[in-house]
C-alpha cells in the first residue's frame, strides 16, 4: 500500500497527489512514468511523474479526471492509501546540452511538461514555455513554470486569460520573431502535438513529443501501447514515452487512443452515479 501524503485540487478536473514511494523516488527522472492501481479490482493506469523528492521519498502525480479509475483516485483523501504504485518506467527525457528550448504544453499535459522544463533549466538551457488551456479556470502550474522558464506564455481558447489562441499560434510568433530553438518539446493532447510537429517541421526544428497511450504492464509485456515511429512499430512504455515527433504516425495514434472510449464513458458514468448515491 502506498500513502497519499498530500492532495491538492488544481482545478475542477485536475488533481495533484504526492505519494509515498521511496524506491521509485530514488530513481525517478523527468519524462518517466509510474503505473498505479487504486484498489483491488482496479485497472492499471500509467501517469507521468510530475515531480519527485528523493529526501522525502515521494513522487508527485497530476491527473485529469477522465475515466472510472481517475474518478476513484480523486475520491481518495490525504492520508489514505492506494493499492499499487510501480516505477519509474520508460526512458527519461533528454534534457542536457541544449542552448534554448521551447516547451509546449496543452491542458493537463502541463503536469508532464513542467518537470521537463525544470530539468532543462537545471541543465543550463534557456527555457521558453507555452501552455494552452480551454479557459482561465483550467490554468494550472503557472507559478511553477514561471520559476524555471525565461519566458512563459499562457494561451486560452476563449481568451479569458493570457492570450487568445492556440499554442501553435504562440510558438509560430516566437519563431518568426527570431527565437532560435535547438529543440521543441510538445506535451499534451495528440491533436495538439500533431500540429506542433507540423509547424516545427516547416522550420526544421527537431521536436520531441511525449506519448501516453493505453497500456497495462508498462514493461514491454502487452504491446498495447504500440505506435508507429519512422515506419517501425515501437512500444511507448519501454522505447518511449518520448519520441521524435516528426517520425510519429499521429493519425494512427489518435485512432488507437479511441479503442475504449465507450467503455471509459460508461464506467465513468457508473462510478459517478455510485459516488452520488454514496453521498446522498
Amino acid at each position: 500500500m502506498y500513502k497519499i501524503v498530500k492532495k491538492q485540487i488544481l482545478n475542477e478536473y485536475v488533481t495533484l497527489m504526492e505519494i509515498d514511494a521511496p524506491f521509485v523516488a530514488k530513481k525517478a527522472k523527468a519524462g518517466q512514468f509510474i503505473i498505479l492501481r487504486v484498489d483491488e479490482n482496479g485497472e492499471r493506469i500509467p501517469l507521468t511523474i510530475a515531480d519527485y523528492n528523493r529526501e522525502k521519498g515521494t513522487i508527485t502525480i497530476i491527473f485529469q479526471i477522465v475515466g472510472a479509475t481517475t474518478a476513484k483516485l480523486n475520491e481518495k483523501k490525504e492520508g489514505e492509501y492506494i493499492c499499487d504504485f510501480a516505477g519509474p518506467l520508460g526512458t527519461p527525457s533528454e534534457t542536457e546540452g541544449f542552448k534554448k528550448v521551447a516547451v509546449i504544453a496543452g491542458g493537463v499535459g502541463s503536469a508532464i511538461a513542467y518537470p521537463t522544463a525544470k530539468q532543462l533549466h537545471m541543465d543550463g538551457a534557456i527555457v521558453h514555455a507555452v501552455a494552452g488551456f480551454r479557459n482561465k479556470n483550467l490554468v494550472i502550474l503557472e507559478e511553477e513554470f514561471k520559476s524555471c522558464c525565461d519566458k512563459f506564455i499562457v494561451m486560452t481558447d476563449d481568451g479569458s486569460y493570457g492570450e487568445k489562441g492556440l499554442v501553435t499560434d504562440a510558438l509560430k510568433k516566437l519563431i518568426e520573431s527570431g527565437e532560435k530553438y535547438d529543440r521543441v518539446i510538445a506535451i499534451g493532447p495528440l491533436v495538439m502535438m500533431k500540429f506542433v510537429c507540423k509547424l516545427t517541421k516547416e522550420y526544421d526544428i527537431k521536436t520531441i513529443v511525449s506519448m501516453n497511450p493505453v497500456m497495462i504492464d508498462g514493461t514491454g509485456m502487452c504491446g498495447g501501447c504500440r505506435l508507429t515511429v519512422g515506419g517501425k512499430t515501437k512500444f511507448a512504455c519501454v522505447d518511449g514515452p518520448d519520441f521524435d515527433g516528426h517520425q510519429v504516425d499521429f493519425d494512427e495514434a489518435i485512432a488507437r487512443s479511441g479503442i475504449y472510449k465507450d467503455f471509459e464513458r460508461q464506467s465513468h458514468e457508473h462510478i459517478c452515479n455510485l459516488l452520488k448515491e454514496q453521498k446522498n
Binding site: M221, G223, T233, I259
Partner: peptide, 20 residues
C-alpha cells in the same frame, strides 16, 4: 515480450498480442 507478424494493419484497434 510479444512478437508481431509485421504485416499491414497490425496496429488497428482490435489487434491484440496474446499477452495483452
Amino acid at each position: 515480450l510479444p512478437r508481431f507478424m509485421e504485416i499491414p494493419g497490425e496496429n488497428l484497434n482490435g489487434v491484440y498480442s496474446a499477452n495483452e
